[in-house]
Design a protein around this nucleic acid. Structure first.
Length: 281
DNA sequence: GTTAATACCTGTTCGC
DNA sequence: TGCGAACAGGTATTAA
């Protein structure tokens, strides 16, 4: 599922065909994705140049020359495919197509339609509700043990649920929360308030912040290398398979050196959590 | 105010 | 082999 590293990979893949380019024809094949597309969607994009393509958490933001911002979220199954502007039959579940004036055809497919596209005025960007509530970017300097402690203190839930909460830290999903907790040697069922007391250079907070950054950095690097493959295949952007250390490995041996534990799966808040009961405490 | 549960979706997998 | 149930999960909404 597209989490922060996948969205960042998509951004890097789209930049060469969007930044500094302008929208020609925009095809909108249905009225809604997760929500209704804004009125005049295609018309408001046509002819506008993209000044910059940025990312905030799992949101892609195309800043247009006229001050509008095209906000895009991939949901669970959203993918972009870059192709030549040919008259090939449109794939199923392709809901939006951007034909760039310089030639690229950017198709958006999303079978489950959990994705979002919206157009907002740049001046309103900071107050846009979904963005305004987001916590710090996990790869920024603002995210460290101290920030984590401030966010987690006093909360009455588990560390797994807290890390999935986009208000605590923005951009993590189920997979990378599992991976970060494994890397930090921390069990997903730990009480948040208790973890928040583990300060100090070698405390749980510091390990967790560092593990989160490391997992995301490695995934982004992996996605970057997979970009080359995308170009050769169908140009699909949105999901790449990395090798996860615990996610999806129920019943298999823990990969930590010297650990003989077996990965277990439990359900928290209706979501699967994978962890090693031996080395995650 | 905070936390948990539910709804939205459909392709894929699993069990009978 | 075929069918239906379960499952995947980001986020807005509703309930507790």
């Amino acid at each position: 599922m597209p989490e922060l590293p996948e969205v960042e990979t998509v951004r890097r893949g789209l930049r060469p065909v969007m930044e500094g380019r302008s929208f020609g024809k925009v095809e909108q094949r249905r009225a809604n994705l997760r929500f209704a597309l804004p009125s005049g969607f295609a018309r408001r994009l046509t002819g506008r140049a993209v000044v910059a393509l940025t990312r905030r958490a799992k949101y892609l933001l195309a800043h247009l020359e006229d001050g509008q911002v095209l906000l895009m979220h991939l949901g669970m199954t959203g993918r972009f495919a870059i192709g030549e502007d040919a008259a090939a039959p449109a794939p199923v579940h392709e809901h939006v197509v951007f034909h760039m004036r310089q030639g690229a055809r950017i198709g958006y497919r999303d079978p489950r339609r959990f994705g979002v596209m919206d157009l907002i005025a740049g001046a309103d960007l900071a107050e846009y509700p979904p963005l305004a509530a987001l916590g710090p970017e996990p790869l920024s300097e603002a995210f460290d043990a101290a920030a984590l402690q401030a966010a987690l203190a006093g909360r009455r839930t588990t560390i797994k649920a807290a890390l999935l909460d986009q208000r605590m830290v923005a951009g993590l999903g189920n997979i990378y929360v599992c991976e970060a907790l494994f890397r930090a040697g921390m069990r997903p069922t730990r009480e948040t308030a208790e973890v928040a007391r583990e300060r100090g250079a070698d405390g749980g907070l510091a390990r967790l912040a560092e593990a989160t950054k490391a997992v995301l950095r490695e995934a982004i690097a992996s996605g970057g290398s997979s970009l080359r493959d995308f170009a050769g295949a169908d140009g699909a952007l949105g999901y790449f398979q990395t090798r996860f250390e615990v996610y999806g490995r129920e019943g298999e041996r823990c990969l930590r050196f010297g650990c003989e534990g077996m990965v277990e799966r439990i359900v928290q808040q209706g979501r699967s959590s994978f962890f090693c009961p031996v080395c995650q405490r």
